[in-house]
Design a protein around this nucleic acid. Structure first.
Ligand code: MN
Ligand code: MN
Ligand code: ZN
Ligand code: ZN
Lengths: 143, 143
DNA sequence: TTATTTATGCAACAAAGTTGCATTTAATTA
DNA sequence: TAATTAAATGCAACTTTGTTGCATAAATAA
């Protein structure tokens, strides 16, 4: 797996540093998006807070991860589709924010419906967030 | 107009105080959503920062205004449809966030398309934000 | 191996939002 | 109208998320 991470960094022209490999490996293993504070808690003081922010920013700029804002306005990050580059993100999928566990899921199979917006306005990116109860929380409730 | 504002506060069971009338009148006159920091700048030190937050929270809970997060995760508020109550917000319209002037517009005529979400997940509220160039900024660019 | 470029760590700062508590004000009651 | 009561306000202190400047360290290139 470490090879895979190194390749991904190299492919996007980023130096293979300890913090970058670590952050990328954590994000790759998750099925929900992670914020800087969450990553800080997972990784511990091994990586500086500021470095974490800068790693995330670098990854986003290169198209390795994409940013989603949760219901509190906190930035959360998830790994991108492999077709993303520094020129263009192709993550036009719906996101789901669980109101119980607060996790943010990438609904990779749900693409965002087309919209006809009013004359005069120009659309660049569209963002769709569904708030509700996720599958795991529903199981806990009903089970 | 002041009568209208007083009626609105009374209708939702809120005391008619100076700060509340002032904030509501400012929000009513705008065509874009306003954040606490923006309102603070508009209104000045006449109203305390914390009071502003509490007025906005009270308005939101009663269904007088609704909250939208802009591209930076900052909460912005706009007046609700008159059918909103403390039981239920009926603001299921699309929002537009201009990437130049950063204003957030309520697209009252654009309702959010229906989505079929995966089994196991339960949807409560759906949020749709279009990022792009607003009509005013487009005019400045082309004009 | 040395030079060069880039990333990291630390300290300090900033913006947005929250909490506790004493004081004031609006609405209610007498 | 005046006293009462419940709620709202103002102020100070705090928290969380995110940024910036700068010296040091590490990765890649020569
Ligand atoms: Mn995603
Ligand atoms: Mn709206
Ligand atoms: Zn959940
Ligand atoms: Zn604009």
């Amino acid at each position: 797996m470490n090879d895979e991470l190194n390749d991904l960094l190299e492919k996007h022209g980023l130096k293979k540093t300890g913090p970058r490999v670590k952050v990328l490996s954590v994000l790759k293993l998750r099925d929900t998006a992670a914020s800087q504070p969450e990553l800080e808690e997972i990784i511990g003081k091994e990586i500086d807070r500021v470095t974490l922010y800068r790693v995330l920013t670098a990854f986003e700029e290169k198209g390795i991860i994409h940013k989603v804002l949760d219901m509190n306005g906190t930035a959360k990050y998830a790994v991108c589709d492999s077709s993303c580059t520094d020129k263009q993100h192709k993550d036009e999928h719906v996101h789901f924010n669980c109101t119980l566990c607060l996790n943010v899921y990438c609904m990779d199979t749900l693409h965002i419906p087309q919209l006809v917006i009013p004359a005069g306005f120009t659309s660049q990116v569209v963002n769709m967030m569904v708030y509700g109860i996720c599958d795991k929380c529903n199981l806990k409730l009903k089970g």
